[in-house]
Each structure stands twice: as structure tokens, then as C-alpha cells.
Amino acid sequence: MSESSLSAPELVVLPRRRFLRRSAWTQPLGLVGLALLVAIVLMAVLAPWLSAHGPIEQGARRFMAPSAEHWFGTDQLGRDVFARVIYGARVSLPYALQLVIMASVIGTIAGAIAGYFGGWIDGVIMRAADLVMAFPDIILAMAVVAALGPGLFNAVLAVVVVSWPIYARVVRSMLLTIRDEPYVQSSRLLGVSSARALWVDVRPNVVGPLIVLAALEFGHAVLILAGLSFLGLGAQPPAPEWGSMVSDGSKYFDKWWLSVFPGLAILLVVLAANFVGDTLRDALDPRTAKAFR
């Protein structure tokens, strides 16, 4: 519309960009996502109390359809699928979290170095980022796993290799925009060393966007780890990992409950993370949000 022709309300120059608009916390989508995440974390913590059975306990008849006794049925070894789905949160969430933390720390350091030093260092780091991004993430992760051997932790390492560049890009671009803001310039003029300016003036402005990015990437981490486990390259039996449960279920095609429930668990976690991440991204300053694309 033609809003640009209207006179803008007087602009107040804030010393710091506020990272979220307050309205972020009133968005229904974000609240739903947050509630879901909290529920899932509780589910992981309270797993032993929520489920009557253990995740690798083979007490029941095999391939029982969902019933009052076994809500999600039983699997090919007579294990309770509900218990395995509940306990699965204890596998997927910590590994995904680990992945996001490692990738964001590496990416942040790389991006900060690139943005701070500029010049050829910037060139090398960012080209390396481009390079990694050119690789198909799952396939490269498969190659790394094949080189290191299967296992969830190796899968995490493999995915870290392919996911740090996005953080590096965001941090670098934030750094470059913020560096030119008047208040940073002015503290430079006041003789503040640039390393100190980076810490005092820039850090608060980078942390917010990084959290948003991490929320968005968390969902992706859960997805890709589950995918690798589905392919047999991540979690190894008998661990109750959702991806490998779906994979087990795919071998018994007519026993739909084997794969439907763990798959739904993945969907719910990722959806919740994306609801939160997306709401936060919308609440970001539009200039910051641009760096995410």
C-alpha cells in the first residue's frame, strides 16, 4: 500500500535496538510452540513416571495394535511403543541441543573473526562457509559418519560440520551493520578499543538474533539427526530414537503404529521449535531479520 507516502511517526533514536517487540509474547503461534516445547521437555524429564514400561523392556506380545494397555501398541520385539516414544525425547532433545550449541559456538567465533578482522581472513572464512553450504547436508553428514563410524555422537559431529556456516553468516552480517551504527562509532571516537566496543556495544545486539537462529536451527537439527538415524547411521539399537523407530516400522508396513507415533513425535518437536523460532524472527527488527534469508 502507499504507507510510505504518509509522514512517518517521529523516529526516536534508541541507543540500542530492542531485540524483540513486546508483542512477540502475545502471538498465539509462538505461545503454542512454547507450551509444546515445555510439555515435551517435561515428558522427557518425567519419562519413568509417565510410562508403565521401560523403553527396552520386552515384556509384551509382539505387534500388538494400540490398546488401553499399550497406547501406541508394541513393536517387533514386544516393546511398548508409547514408552519408547516418551523415552525417545531423552535421546533426540539432548543430542539436538548439543548439535545446536556446538554449531553456534563454532559459527559465532568464525563469523566474529571474519567480521572483526575483515580483509583476507574474512574472505577465507566466508568462502569456506560457502563451500560447506554447497555440499548436500545429509549426504556430507553420511560421508563423515561413514568415515568416523555410525553413532549418534558422530552424527552430531557430522552435522556440526555442515551447519556452522549459517551462524557465521548471521553473526558476521550483524557485526558489519552494527559496526557502522552511530553509537558504536561514537564510542570508537571516544577512544574505546575496538575489541572492547565489540564486546560492550555489539554483543548485546548479536545475542538476540543468535537465539532466534538457534531456535530455528534446533528443529532442523532434530530433523537431520532423525534422518540419519532413519538411515541407520545415527542412533544404534536398542536406543529408543525416533528416526530409527520409524525405520524399524518401515519394515513392517502394515503395522502402522510402529512408525506413525515416533514420526508424529518428531513432527511435534520440530513444529514447536519452528513456531517459536518463526514468531521470534517476526519480532526481530526487520533489518536484522534480513540477515536470516
Binding site: 503461534l29 532413519f230 520409524v246 508396513f253 512408525s259 513444529l271
Partner: peptide, 26 residues
């Protein structure tokens, strides 16, 4: 559309493949 597109980037592909195959074929 926002919810649809978020669901699109959230659904595990391999699982969706199985479910659609189960429903539409089986």
C-alpha cells in the same frame, strides 16, 4: 498458509513418505 508452510519445513520427509505410501497405496 503460515501454519502450512511451517508444517512443511517441520515434517520428517522419510516419515511422510511412509505415511503417504501407506495411505494412498496400501
Amino acid at each position: 498458509i503460515r501454519i502450512i508452510s511451517l508444517a512443511g519445513v517441520s515434517v520428517p520427509t522419510f516419515w511422510l513418505a511412509l505415511v503417504t505410501l501407506y495411505v494412498f497405496f496400501f
